[in-house]
Design a protein around this nucleic acid. Structure first.
Lengths: 209, 209
DNA sequence: AATATGTTTAACAATTTTGTTGATGCAAAT
DNA sequence: ATTTGCATCAACAAAATTGTTAAACATATT
């Protein structure tokens, strides 16, 4: 009996979790309007009515997935905070940290970029209040300070933009780049792994005086 | 009478053109499934039936816009071909050429990235046959040669990926970056303009021995 | 065994979106 | 002035998509 209880609870959670994972997969690729509830149900291997039973509406389900994604974004950006390291070490910490989490969830980057465009006001608000917002602005101003101290050279905004471009683009445009290079999934994953180290050398060369 | 004839013809073409421009705007932001015919009609300021009158179905209308986008992509990538310049000049030519065309059509980049993901096989095919495909592979192999000749240093694929990341990302993730930097549309446009020159210095420093 | 509780499903209803058609207008040709 | 041919629109029909419900099912509690 006790065993049954555990089993049942686990299976219940499993359904909800299964739906969330399926929904994440579909929403991340198709966006809110582009996604179909049936596609999510198929992905989860369950009846479509279950989606409504657990999450009421498409919008509410999306909201859950979206919040999770935001939390993840805050965590990723949090990788920058490492208090009192010199700027190059800080950049290195960010590059490695970002790459690590992007490798484990490579669909995420493009989703965020798309959502930003579709819902700019939401993110405007978020930048003012959230962890990510503070971190990003802090990072940008640290770059500025380092330039003042002649530790690195260039325009602060351009440098900031370049660093995140080099980090994010390989994941956001994964399929495109992979196709351009004629790489298999495996080859490209290897490229991304190796990139962590390549990038630091590349960036350091580019910004040190 | 002659004047009337001209006027009428122009207005007819205008409607079709108006629809195409509106459709481009909507499809580029929302994708095929995410776009709504009513949204396109509203954007064009005409009755929705007109879309069907001129283009039959949503799919066919999308196909037209998509083909145009592919043509543009081929043209952009063609900016690389400048026959016998040294590698750094060739890169410079690409960076400037790409930035120029991206500034005039900034929604395009993210659209292509998204379509690549949604329809990988289509692009796989395209890379084998099209202008863009040849150009991209040629560019990648030129970088490889230059590395052999010790003109530049690094891994060829990483360098190729880095160059296109630095060029494309600022447009693809425009809204995101703009929000992160707290820039207005105007400020960000200025940043993109200035970036043409910044980028070349950045890239040269990063890849010369 | 009977009951209660939450889960699942198929069928249905409502809504949204796409696609069609017949009536109307408008300029050019006769 | 009448006719012709295309463009436009409002209203309608069809299809796709989302949301609801009542009944069946499973499992734990009594």
């Amino acid at each position: 009996m006790f065993v049954y209880f555990i089993t049942m609870t686990e299976e219940k959670k499993d359904t909800e979790q299964t739906i969330k994972e399926a929904a994440k997969k579909i929403f991340l690729v198709n966006g809110l309007k582009g996604a179909r509830m049936q596609a999510i149900a198929d992905e989860a291997g369950i009846n479509r009515a279950m989606l409504h039973y657990y999450f009421r509406t498409k919008d509410k389900l999306f909201e859950v997935i979206f919040s999770d994604a935001m939390t993840e974004m805050n965590q990723r950006m949090g990788a920058i905070i490492t208090s009192d390291l010199p700027i190059l070490k800080k950049i290195e910490h960010f590059v490695h940290g970002y790459s690590e989490s992007a490798i484990s969830n490579p669909e995420f980057d493009l989703f965020i970029i798309n959502e930003f465009r579709q819902n700019p006001t939401y993110f405007d608000e978020m930048m003012k209040t959230s962890n990510a917002g503070t971190v990003i602005k802090g990072f940008a101003s640290e770059i500025e300070k380092a330039i003042d101290k002649k530790e690195i050279v260039g325009n602060p905004n351009q440098i900031f933009l370049s660093i995140i471009a080099l980090c994010i683009f390989p994941f956001a445009a994964k399929t495109m780049v992979r196709t351009m290079l004629g790489h298999s999934e495996k080859q490209y994953t290897k490229l991304l792994e190796e990139r962590k180290d390549f990038l630091m050398q590349f960036i350091i060369k580019a910004i040190t005086p």
